[in-house]
Amino acid sequence: MKRMEYVENLKKIIQAKKYLDQALYNGHSLVTYDLLLRILESSLNNKPTTIKEVCTQTTQSMLNTRKHLNHLTRHGWVELVQDTKDKRQRLLVPTDKLKKLINELSKNFFN
């Protein structure tokens, strides 16, 4: 790999992180990024994830995971919807606000 290509790609990643730092809520962490990616990936696969699945699959504490999930829902990045098959379950799905952010990131930093 050419050094210039590497440097330019690294700069894009750093800029994208700074962009996310400004867009997301104060106090977010790598846990937030992990949660967002899990939720987005499950949505992409048309298999929305549940709160329970996210909390049990993470290497972080359940309390910390739940805290960040609450922040994501409160700030409008993720919403909870009732599972149509199992009324006891609530599914985590990305909001239009999050989808717009993903499109902006792609357009501004990864093209």
Rank of each mutant, 00 (worst) to 15 (best):
R3N: 10
R3K: 13
M4D: 13
Y6K: 10
V7Y: 12
E8P: 11
N9F: 12
N9G: 06
L10G: 08
L10K: 15
K12E: 15
K12Q: 15
I13V: 15
Q15R: 15
A16V: 09
A16S: 15
K17Q: 11
K17M: 11
K17Y: 12
Y19R: 12
Y19H: 15
D21C: 09
Q22N: 13
L24P: 12
L24H: 04
Y25K: 06
Y25P: 14
N26S: 13
G27R: 01
S29N: 01
L30F: 03
L30W: 02
T32M: 01
D34E: 12
L35K: 04
L35G: 05
L37E: 14
I39K: 04
I39V: 14
E41C: 11
S42P: 06
S42V: 05
L44V: 03
L44P: 07
N45I: 05
K47I: 05
P48H: 00
T49H: 06
T50G: 11
I51S: 07
K52S: 02
K52F: 02
K52N: 03
E53H: 08
E53K: 14
V54P: 01
V54E: 04
V54M: 05
V54H: 01
V54I: 14
C55Q: 09
T56N: 08
T56L: 11
Q57F: 06
Q60K: 12
M62H: 09
M62E: 14
N64W: 04
N64A: 13
T65V: 10
H68T: 01
H68E: 00
H68F: 02
L69H: 01
N70R: 08
L72Y: 03
T73R: 04
R74T: 04
R74P: 00
W77Y: 08
W77F: 12
V78P: 00
E79A: 05
L80C: 04
L80M: 07
Q82L: 10
Q82I: 09
D83T: 08
D83S: 07
D83M: 07
T84S: 14
T84K: 14
K85F: 15
D86I: 14
Q89G: 11
Q89K: 15
R90Q: 15
R90A: 09
L91Y: 05
V93P: 13
D96I: 09
K97Y: 03
L98E: 05
L98F: 04
K99C: 08
K99M: 10
K99D: 05
K99G: 04
K100L: 11
K100M: 10
K100R: 12
K100W: 07
L101Y: 06
L101C: 11
L101S: 10
